[in-house]
Amino acid sequence: MQNFFFDFDSTLADTKRVAVVATQQAFLTKGLTAPAANVVVSYMGVPIEVSFAKMADRPLTPADLEPLFQEFRRQYALADGEIQPFDGMLDTLAALKTAGKRLFVVSSKHSTPLRRNLAQIGMETTFEALCGSDMVAHYKPAPDGILNLLDRFELDPAQSVMIGDAIYDIQMGQNAHVATAGALWGAADPTAVKNQQPTYLLRHPKQLLII
């Protein structure tokens, strides 16, 4: 593989606790029942523009949802200093770059907090480009994020791999007709990821060096 597309949450960095707390606090602040932690985790990888309506205890209009999104982003920013890269990730990314690989991020996060989070964990110059949820017409598992980068940088799909911890990442890669790698080190549901039949199943970031 020459072109590596990474999910962010639970693939590059451990963000589960921050995501759970920010989601629950946002819901409570807006007078909604806070979703259980396992429910929040199950939707990680899905943009909040999709997941929040599904987690709400009552139907929400677009006018209801926008303040909820804003409160979530505020709560997330208060705690995102707790985000840390997974063990071995920084060294692995450095080794991939030294080997001449091209590195990208495809995330369900909005590109603004995504850039901030990458900088916080020492990855601000690691990736050639990123594609956030605000840069696509259709969210994961649609292939738009990967196709965006393949087109912008004239990359060969046959030499490209999508790395992610959730089924949505694997499905997106499959829909874009690139190879896929299940990042089991961060997966909330490893069995579901395995059942999606990714091209590779990886238990540690350093295994990226041999695909």
Score class of each variant (00 low, 15 high):
57 D>V: 11
185 W>M: 00
182 G>D: 08
107 S>D: 11
208 L>K: 12
199 T>N: 10
119 A>T: 04
174 Q>Y: 08
135 M>A: 04
4 F>H: 11
69 F>D: 06
21 V>S: 10
189 D>V: 02
145 G>I: 05
186 G>K: 04
34 A>E: 12
189 D>C: 07
129 A>H: 12
196 Q>R: 01
71 E>T: 09
43 Y>D: 13
176 A>F: 14
201 L>S: 06
64 D>M: 11
165 D>Q: 07
45 G>Q: 03
147 L>H: 09
82 E>R: 01
27 F>Y: 03
80 D>S: 11
202 L>C: 12
79 A>N: 10
124 E>H: 15
37 A>F: 04
156 D>F: 05
124 E>M: 11
7 D>K: 07
36 A>D: 06
150 L>K: 06
89 M>K: 13
100 G>H: 04
48 I>G: 13
112 T>L: 12
194 K>E: 13
78 L>T: 15
66 E>I: 06
32 L>R: 03
37 A>I: 00
25 Q>S: 10
184 L>K: 02
9 D>G: 14
7 D>A: 12
15 T>N: 05
191 T>I: 09
123 M>P: 09
116 R>F: 15
59 P>C: 09
128 E>H: 15
114 L>R: 08
22 A>Y: 09
106 V>A: 12
201 L>C: 13
112 T>F: 14
205 P>E: 00
38 N>L: 12
142 A>D: 04
93 L>M: 03
49 E>V: 07
56 A>K: 08
86 F>Y: 13
138 H>N: 12
18 V>P: 15
133 S>C: 12
134 D>V: 08
32 L>E: 04
120 Q>S: 14
203 R>Q: 07
188 A>V: 00
99 A>V: 05
109 K>N: 14
191 T>L: 13
200 Y>F: 14
176 A>Y: 12
210 I>A: 15
143 P>L: 10
54 K>G: 08
142 A>C: 06
125 T>Q: 10
86 F>V: 02
208 L>P: 07
166 A>Y: 06
15 T>D: 01
178 V>L: 00
66 E>D: 11
40 V>C: 09
162 M>S: 08
203 R>S: 05
158 A>D: 14
167 I>V: 15
154 E>Q: 15
169 D>E: 07
23 T>A: 00
88 G>C: 10
190 P>V: 01
55 M>A: 08
43 Y>G: 10
184 L>A: 00
12 L>G: 02
117 N>L: 02
12 L>F: 00
47 P>L: 09
202 L>D: 08
42 S>G: 15
95 A>F: 00
208 L>M: 15
104 F>I: 06
183 A>G: 02
185 W>E: 00
202 L>G: 05
146 I>W: 02
110 H>T: 02
119 A>K: 03
159 Q>H: 14
33 T>E: 05
5 F>E: 07
151 D>P: 03
41 V>Y: 07
19 A>I: 13
11 T>H: 01
171 Q>G: 09
94 A>W: 00
156 D>L: 11
144 D>S: 01
193 V>D: 01
123 M>V: 04
86 F>G: 09
207 Q>A: 15
114 L>A: 10
101 K>T: 11
13 A>F: 02
172 M>P: 05
